[in-house]
Design a binder for these strands. Structure first.
Length: 108
DNA sequence: CAGGTGACCTTAA
DNA sequence: GTTAAGGCCACCT
């Protein structure tokens, strides 16, 4: 799970990524659910920009009437990310990682 | 062993 | 633009 946490920590301020993309980057294609699990069990969630991870449809994956949902939306808006009707335009905010640079920073 | 459950994804309507 | 179904996998009953 360290790998997941590390990659999530690399998402820049004001950008977002998806569970599936993070899984791919971690070399675990098809394991989006594992990413959500990794976030849920992060030892120090406050140290991670967990709120920059959304689903592939550009939506926050918590129930829209829940507290976590409002919290995530607030964090994103604080970073300048526009959330319209619970949706985020991936075309504008999706993180485009430079794979080469990312690999060089991997602590494993 | 047989279901059920998720902070999910892709595809096909 | 939507939604629904099937796929997915680690865990828990």
């Amino acid at each position: 799970m360290e790998k997941i946490w590390f990659i999530v920590s690399m998402i820049p301020h004001g950008r977002v990524s998806s569970y599936g993309k993070i899984a791919d980057l971690a070399g675990l294609p098809g394991r989006a659910r594992y990413v959500s699990k990794a976030l849920k069990s992060a030892p120090d969630i406050m140290a991670l920009p967990w709120y920059r991870v959304i689903n592939s449809q550009g939506r926050i994956s918590f129930d829209e009437h829940s507290q976590p949902y409002r919290e995530q939306m607030e964090h994103l808006r604080n970073e300048g990310v526009v959330v319209n009707r619970g949706k985020i335009r991936l075309q504008e905010y999706e993180w485009q990682p430079d794979i080469a640079t990312l690999v060089l920073q991997l602590p494993f």
